[in-house]
């Protein structure tokens, strides 16, 4: 049913990775992505790959869930690889007509491919093990310094969590509106592209009106419950670093050191 759709594909489990503070996971993902761009050789990728596998193992998320995200970027992956393969100048291995495949090209294409796969896997692992709610909390906390330059960090995170709450409700509503219009013989499936776009009007108008009404109601309900922005607000579930989080940070530092030493200096 529509109400069961979870955003960000959270996989419910109780693993070490799931229990980590969201801030640790966000920082770790960030560091991991940067590390991928620091790596210059095969050993570096091996270290990154092993690190990723370790995290997946610890998270208890079945690999098929992780690779499901890969389907969506398959074409992007393919295009990136093809471009790199054919457009990198260097020592030609194969050439026919104007196209040539170079040694450097193969190397670069493989590197880009692996990099992209690791990147997606790493960030999916974060969204799979962190609830959207925790993710917004973590982001809000990490972005706190930006408040000094007047970025409305609290407001943005409040907006995100409200959106997360209302998206399933609005999806269900869209379904009801579509049915109500179909009961009046509306046709959304046939006709030219322009006609099809036009046939969306009877769905969009009621949907927008309803969304505005809900927003209005919600604003009033929040005000009635003493909401007045982030100032002076306490948290029911404040983010507190635990021992595991400290260990995780330590592991992360070791990983980064390994990448720099092995991937850049030692074998370059």
């Amino acid at each position: 049913m529509l109400r069961d759709i979870t955003l960000g594909q959270y996989y419910r489990a109780d693993s070490v990775i799931h229990r980590l503070d969201p801030r640790v996971k966000i920082v770790a993902t960030f560091v991991f992505i940067i590390s991928l761009f620091l790596v210059k050789n095969f050993i570096g990728y091996l270290v990154a790959g092993l690190f990723l596998c370790l995290c997946i193992k610890l998270s208890t998320v079945p690999p098929k869930f992780i690779f499901r995200g890969m389907k969506a970027i398959f074409f992007l992956l393919l295009i990136t690889m093809v471009f790199n393969l054919f457009l990198t100048p260097g020592e030609a291995l194969l050439s026919f007509w104007k196209i040539k495949i170079t040694k450097e090209g193969i190397k670069l294409a493989l590197m880009m491919g692996v990099r992209l796969v690791f990147l997606i896997t790493g960030s999916s692992l974060m969204t799979l093990t962190t609830t959207p709610n925790n993710l917004t909390d973590g982001l809000e906390d990490l972005l706190k310094p930006l408040k000094k330059i007047r970025v409305p960090v609290h407001e943005i995170s409040m907006m995100m969590s409200i959106a997360l709450r209302f998206i399933p409700i609005l999806m269900e509503e869209t379904d009801k509106i579509m049915k109500a219009q179909m009961a009046r013989c509306a046709d959304f499936e046939s006709g030219s592209l322009i006609n099809r776009a036009r046939s969306l009007v009877p769905i969009l108008v009621p949907l927008f009106i309803s969304a505005f009404r809900r927003a209005n109601d919600l604003a009033m309900a929040m005000e009635a419950r003493c909401y007045r922005g982030g100032e002076g607000r306490t948290k029911m579930k404040p983010l507190i670093y635990k021992k595991e989080d400290a260990i995780a940070y330590l592991v992360l530092v070791i990983y980064l050191a390994l990448i720099i030493v092995l991937g850049r200096i030692l074998f370059s």
Binding site: I162, R214, D217, A224, R225
Partner: peptide, 14 residues
């Protein structure tokens, strides 16, 4: 405190 008519439009938490 105030309770409103539409149950969906006054729940903020997920």
């Amino acid at each position: 405190g105030m309770i409103f008519q539409n149950p969906d439009n006054q729940i903020i938490g997920q």
